[in-house]
Amino acid sequence: ETGKELVLALYDYQEKSPREVTMKKGDILTLLNSTNKDWWKVEVNDRQGFVPAAYVKKL
């Protein structure tokens, strides 16, 4: 879809709370919100949640 910003997972991340999502290094995720410098909201496999901003980079 146009207008979607994507990020690349630089590291594996295992969710530690229900508000977070698990990702694997190399995953491409849809970026939903990056206003917080530490935690970015992403969508992966129809799930939305937060990942550490340092673990992903914008494509």
Rank of each mutant, 00 (worst) to 15 (best):
T30M: 12
T2L: 14
T22H: 04
R47N: 06
G49F: 08
G49N: 01
G3I: 14
D12Q: 03
P52R: 03
L8D: 01
L31H: 00
K25F: 05
A54H: 13
D46H: 14
V7L: 11
V42F: 01
K4Y: 14
Y13A: 00
A54G: 09
T22A: 07
Y11V: 11
K41S: 07
G26D: 06
T22S: 15
G3A: 14
E20M: 05
F50S: 03
V21K: 02
E15G: 15
P52F: 02
L10A: 04
W40D: 00
E20L: 05
T22R: 05
T2K: 10
V44K: 15
N33T: 08
F50E: 04
Y11A: 11
Q14H: 14
V7A: 11
N45D: 14
L10S: 03
A53H: 03
S34R: 07
T22G: 09
L59I: 14
L29N: 01
G3H: 14
L8A: 05
N36P: 05
Y13F: 07
A9H: 01
W40C: 04
E15D: 05
K41H: 12
V51A: 03
E5D: 12
L59D: 04
M23E: 00
S17C: 09
D27V: 05
V51G: 01
Q14P: 06
S17E: 08
A53P: 04
K24D: 04
T35F: 10
K37H: 12
T35L: 09
K41I: 14
E20I: 04
L10K: 05
K16C: 10
M23C: 06
E20H: 06
K37M: 09
A54I: 10
K24Q: 10
T2W: 13
L8M: 13
T22W: 04
K41D: 03
R19N: 15
N36D: 15
G49V: 05
E5H: 12
V56L: 15
L10G: 02
G49M: 05
T30Q: 11
V44S: 13
V42R: 00
S17N: 13
K57T: 15
V51C: 03
K4R: 14
K57C: 13
P18N: 10
G49L: 05
V21I: 15
K25H: 06
L31E: 00
K25A: 14
L6V: 08
V7H: 04
E1L: 11
V42C: 06
K58D: 05
M23G: 00
I28S: 03
P18I: 10
L59T: 06
D12A: 06
A9F: 01
P18D: 12
T2D: 13
L59S: 04
K16R: 14
L29H: 03
P52A: 02
W40T: 03
N36Y: 08
E1R: 02
